Simulated assay, not measured.
Amino acid sequence: MGRLKSLGSSLSRLDAPLTYLPNDDRAARRNPLRHLYGTARWRRLSWDVRLAAAFTCAMCGRIEGAKGQTAADHIEPHRGDPALFWARSNLQCLCKPCHDGVKQAEEARTR
């Protein structure tokens, strides 16, 4: 416990206040439903979407067989609307490059 006591005095000498903490609520304000991505319900829905699409990207047509190389993507951004978040008809299968690059850039432009 001696180390923890000495850490307190080091923290008080920080030049600038910390601007980001892992539990910061800024991410939650941007996407209030973010916590739902970790639920069993989302994992099941995501799997069903990708399986129905035969792991084929709706944008580029790439077929991905490796685990984690596809994502269930919201066609219309849900922007915190639970009905739109869970709507199966609003989901598509995308490969990681299309989801993480092309689609995210499109959504950033429309914000």
Rank of each mutant, 00 (worst) to 15 (best):
S6E: 10
S10W: 08
L11I: 06
R13K: 04
L14Q: 04
A16Y: 09
D25A: 09
A28P: 04
R29T: 03
N31S: 08
P32A: 00
L33Q: 03
L33I: 08
R34A: 06
G38C: 03
G38F: 01
G38A: 04
T39G: 08
W42Q: 01
W42L: 10
R43D: 10
L45M: 10
S46H: 09
W47V: 13
W47I: 12
L51H: 08
L51K: 02
A52G: 09
A53C: 12
A53N: 05
A54Q: 10
F55Q: 10
G61E: 01
R62F: 14
I63K: 11
E64K: 15
A66L: 10
K67Q: 12
A71L: 08
D73W: 07
H74D: 02
H74A: 11
I75M: 00
H78F: 05
G80A: 07
D81R: 14
P82V: 05
P82I: 02
A83V: 11
L84A: 14
L84H: 07
A87R: 02
C93W: 00
L94T: 00
L94N: 02
K96I: 09
P97D: 12
H99P: 00
D100I: 14
G101V: 08
G101M: 11
G101T: 06
V102M: 11
V102G: 10
A105G: 05
E106Q: 09
E107V: 13
E107A: 02
A108W: 04
